[in-house]
Amino acid sequence: MQALRIVIAEDSVLLREGLAQILARAGHEVVAQVGNAPSLLAAVRRSRPDLVITDVRMPPDHSDEGLRAALRLRAEDPDLPIFVLSQYVGQAYADELLESSGIALGYLLKDRVTDVSQFTAAVEQVAAGGVVIDPEVVRRLLARKRRDDPIARLTVREMDVLTRMAEGRSNAAIARELLISEVAVSKHIGNLFGKLGLAGSSDDNRRVLAVLAYLRSPG
């Protein structure tokens, strides 16, 4: 992975510096650190980064300025990879982000950054155009779908694979985590796509989007 130029927006200075530190250690360059939404917009327009990491809630209103800024940056440049960190799982926030466009998008609970190597891997995935959605969001989407037969027919193993796929993990990573072979992972994916009535794809990103679109569809 080549070094990424990253802008971080987070109002807690301690956390911001911690993030900068782990990203620097992973070989990336933090070109700007800002603490509010207007500075984020300015910093991105100035330094044209490869990726933006932003907190949802920031001064001055401590509402969802970070998310608004991210959506605005996305409207200006639909290809700009955006990674949104949130203190809470907000289905509404996730929906708004996913509706903005389905590529190069990350939405994780802030807690996940403390699993340092997984977080940096997720950041790199998003920079490469991938989609990483917090397992908690996926879990809730699954719960929402529970009364539908296809989801109910998934096995526990297939569910495990599905949530990890939504987190943007590769087959190899899923195999490592679940202590099964990569072939087994492919088989699970094939099965669950069959059960959900989705067309399979070898493209990681596209298949994540297919699953998310399916989960978010009403009914």
Binding site: S12, R25, V113, T114
Partner: peptide
């Protein structure tokens, strides 16, 4: 919450 998160992040970094 922010302080605890920073603490947790540092532990994560130490672990690495």
């Amino acid at each position: 919450q922010q302080r605890l998160l920073t603490l947790s992040l540092r532990l994560g970094m130490a672990r690495q």
